[in-house]
Structures are given as C-alpha cells and as structure tokens.
Simulated scan of single mutants.
Amino acid sequence: MFTGIVEALAEVIKVETEGTNKTFTLKAEIAREFKIDQSISHNGVCLTVVETNNDTYKVTAIEETLIKTNLDPVKEGDKLNLERCMPASGRFDGHIVQGHVDQTAVCINKENRDGSWLFDFQYDPTLGNITVEKGSICINGVSLTVFNSASDTFRVAIIPYTYSFTNFHNLEVGDRVNLEFDILGKYIKRILGGYQ
C-alpha cells in the first residue's frame, strides 16, 4: 500500500522488450536501499524489483500493465515518480493508494498561475470510474485533490514543490497519465450500484 507521496524521481536508462513484457532499468539515489522482491510505485504502478546494483535496479511490466498504463511508451531518459510501500508505523500524508492503475487520462490544459499550476484531465467515463469534488485521486503516483469534477474531466492544482519534485514539470497538454481513483469511493459506488 502507498500514500501518493513521491519520494524521488527515477531516470529510465534502458528498456528491454522480452516477449510481451518490458523490463526497465532505472537509476535513482534511493535505489541503494531497494531489495529484490520489494514493491515500488512507478508513476502509480506497483512493480516488483527483480535486480539491484548500487543506484540502479530493474523492474518488469507485463502486457496487461503496459496496455492499461502509460508505461508502454516510456523511453530512455524519461523520469518516473517513485514511492516505496508505506511502513506499518508510517503516517498517511496522502491517501490510500494501492498501486493499481484504473485507467489513463489525457492532459487537456496546463495553466501557470504565477507560481502554481492548474492541470485539467479528461478520461473515459464508460469504464465506470468517478471523481468527487474535493475528493482524492492519484495521478502518476501523486496524491492530489480534485476540483471542477465532471463526468469525464477534473482539475488539480500543483504547488511549486510538487511541480519541481515530481514529473509534473515535464507534463504537457496531450500527455497521458495514470489514474487510480479513490478506493473508498470505488467501494461505495459498487455497494450503491449493486454487484453484477
């Protein structure tokens, strides 16, 4: 389980295709603390460390993950948001994040507000996911608060620290992001809608 508080950026230094899978070699200072079999959130996607070597490590994404997330087009030089699992004694500085991407969205607007930024995203509402005003959402592994919630769009505000410390500073209109909708909202929606 994660909280959506990004610890570091990892640089992709190699991408290898193996059948329908892709193995990513990444470099990050905190990788020195990683262990094989450890779960790490990469842009909000929970992936297992399969190899470590000082400040580099490897993870593999299977075809299903590549189809449902924005990891398939990732290339050398790209930066991914990293977060390790929350320790049992840790604090929830963000919200409950599972590292299971529900779907992707497209950035449809980016607006500089004299030091902070507003981003608008559009997603496919036919997949059954919803946002609520002032509710939580995880975008590329970052816990954020929704506003201007509509049936297929929403807006988030990014403070300068988050903008510079995560890969939001590289995000442009037309880019695709990973979305994980609030788990509490998903359970409530399922209960109210009935099981099918």
Rank of each mutant, 00 (worst) to 15 (best):
V132T: 12
V156P: 10
E133R: 03
S149Y: 05
A157T: 11
I137V: 15
Y123H: 01
G135N: 14
T153C: 11
A157Y: 06
S149P: 08
T153V: 09
I130G: 02
T126F: 02
G135R: 11
Q122Y: 01
V142Y: 04
E133Y: 08
G141A: 04
F121I: 08
V146T: 11
S143E: 04
S151G: 05
F147D: 04
S143Y: 05
G141R: 04
S136Y: 14
D120M: 11
V132P: 01
N148I: 01
S151K: 12
S136K: 08
L127P: 00
N129I: 00
V132Y: 11
V132F: 10
T131Q: 06
Y123T: 00
S151W: 05
A157K: 03
G141H: 05
V142G: 03
V132Q: 12
V142P: 04
G135F: 13
N129C: 00
C138S: 13
V146K: 08
L144V: 13
P125M: 04
G141D: 05
V132D: 03
N148T: 04
Q122H: 07
F147H: 13
F119H: 12
I158M: 12
I130A: 11
N148G: 03
D120V: 07
T153P: 02
T145K: 08
R155N: 12
D120P: 01
V156T: 13
D120N: 14
L144G: 13
N129K: 05
T145Q: 08
F121A: 09
G128L: 01
V146M: 12
I137G: 08
I158K: 08
I137Y: 03
E133M: 09
K134I: 04
G141V: 01
I158N: 10
P125Y: 07
D152K: 10
L144T: 13
Y123W: 13
V156Q: 11
S136H: 12
F119Y: 15
S151N: 13
F119K: 02
K134S: 08
L144D: 14
L127V: 02
R155Y: 04
V156I: 15
D120K: 14
G141S: 07
K134F: 07
G141N: 02
Y123S: 01
A157D: 09
P125F: 07
A157E: 10
F121C: 09
Y123C: 00
Q122N: 06
F121G: 06
S151V: 12
V142A: 14
D152E: 15
T126D: 04
G141W: 07
N129Q: 02
D120I: 05
N148E: 14
T131V: 15
V156D: 12
L144C: 13
A157P: 03
N140I: 06
L127H: 00
Q122L: 05
V146L: 12
T126N: 07
F119I: 06
F121N: 09
T145I: 11
T145A: 09
L127Y: 01
L144A: 14
T126I: 03
N148R: 08
V156L: 12
A150E: 15
S149W: 02
L144H: 10
A157Q: 10
L127T: 00
T153W: 00
Q122T: 05
Y123F: 15
R155V: 13
T126Y: 03
